[in-house]
Design a protein around this nucleic acid. Structure first.
Lengths: 216, 216
DNA sequence: ACTCCGAGTTACCGCTAGTAACATAGCTAG
DNA sequence: CTAGCTATGTTACTAGCGGTAACTCGGAGT
């Protein structure tokens, strides 16, 4: 019964891992991204070294935790992006999906956008990866959106690079506007969706100058 | 001679403060945002409690440090934005100014975009300010750009809110695209500037569908 | 019965942010 | 000249963090 035993063992380890992840999730959602390994271990009913055996270090745990949520968010975004509708509608649906997600679970959002933390010891070796500190979920979203744009649109020569730049740019726009909106709540969601879609549709370039200028 | 004395005292304290800030700057530029108070104090040739007397806590020091760089960056952006030229030219100049800044001093950029750190003790009191963790320099840039847009453009009713949303959105676009570009360096700066300006000019909406779709 | 292996624990290390208590210079008042 | 006050600086400490070494325990294999 080797297979059965090995399978049992595997599932046992996997189940443990999932239990730990769920405990970590609870703590992170309660205490924010500053949750300590001690607190997570306590919530899971065990002690620190077990966490380290399973996840290596805090970064590993956070990465595993972030991957779950990121995958879920990306799946729903992809669904909105792949809907059979006009381009403008799909863009609005995608924006709305993202904003609805961060609105519904702001703690998750906050955790996802704050994973690196720069740890206490940052040995400054590895040659200063300048862009390494970017938020992983944003990078992934940007890459995926860039791919979708490249697949769908005909942008002439240099399509691929243009699509990637746009992907990252649009994701950044969505993120920054969403973050500000989530903090100040100045208007309903639909209004922000419309405003951002309008921005992407070139209304900035089309707008007329103001008549009575700023300095008299 | 009370006034003179007090004045001397003031300038002395201010000079000290500036010296400390410059030392902190050096250390942060060398060690990244994870620079410790001990290291900064050593670089300044003094010990920790003095730093705390001057800046309260690490957040205070970082805020003071960030304010300097943020002010400088905002000033140069404002200059690009206020140039007497066509709108498209000004937008491109502003994008280029930002990208040139982060390209020229990536460590400063990295520090500015990573100030909060969430610290070890995040008491979770104060009711979970959902949006509080946003990067301050981005918020400031978004607000200022929103104001400029509001002053300059005629967007009909609801101009103010629309301008703010656009301000934060555009800044986020610039930031995310710049971050990705700084990490991968896939093309010269001017190309990214053009791509982002094209995006803002509605080329996404105007682009034609690809003929040979993705799935054959 | 003996061994091995994985799960788990206690107890520690080195580091951090931040602070209390003590020491020292220089100026002002009596 | 001495007493006191204020600013400036130090040493020595606390509490908590991420991370690890070394030990303990229970159950499978031969």
């Amino acid at each position: 019964m080797e297979t059965t035993q090995r399978s049992d063992h595997q599932t046992s380890a996997d189940r443990r891992r999932r239990e730990l992840l769920e405990a970590a999730d609870r703590v992170v959602l309660r205490d924010g991204p500053g949750a300590s390994m001690n607190a997570i271990a306590a919530e899971a009913g065990i002690t620190k070294p077990i966490l380290y055996r399973h996840f290596g270090d805090k970064g590993g745990l956070y990465a595993a935790l972030a991957k779950r949520h990121t995958d879920a968010l990306l799946a729903s975004l992809r669904a909105a992006l792949d809907a059979p509708a006009e381009r403008r509608e799909r863009v609005e649906a995608t924006l709305d999906t993202y904003l609805a997600a961060i609105e519904a679970r702001p703690q998750v959002y906050r955790f996802l956008m704050h994973p690196a933390e720069g740890g206490p010891q940052q040995p400054a070796e590895a040659g200063f990866d300048t862009g390494r500190n970017s938020i992983p979920v944003l990078r992934r979203m940007g890459e995926e959106l860039g791919q979708v744009i490249e697949e769908r649109l005909d942008l002439g020569p240099g399509t691929q690079q243009l699509a990637r730049m746009w992907g990252h740019g649009i994701v950044g726009m969505m993120h920054a506007a969403g973050d500000w909106w989530l903090g100040e709540r100045p208007c309903p969601r639909a209004e922000l969706v419309r405003a951002l879609a309008d921005l992407l549709w070139g209304r900035l370039a089309a707008a007329g100058d103001r008549v009575g200028g700023p300095g008299f």
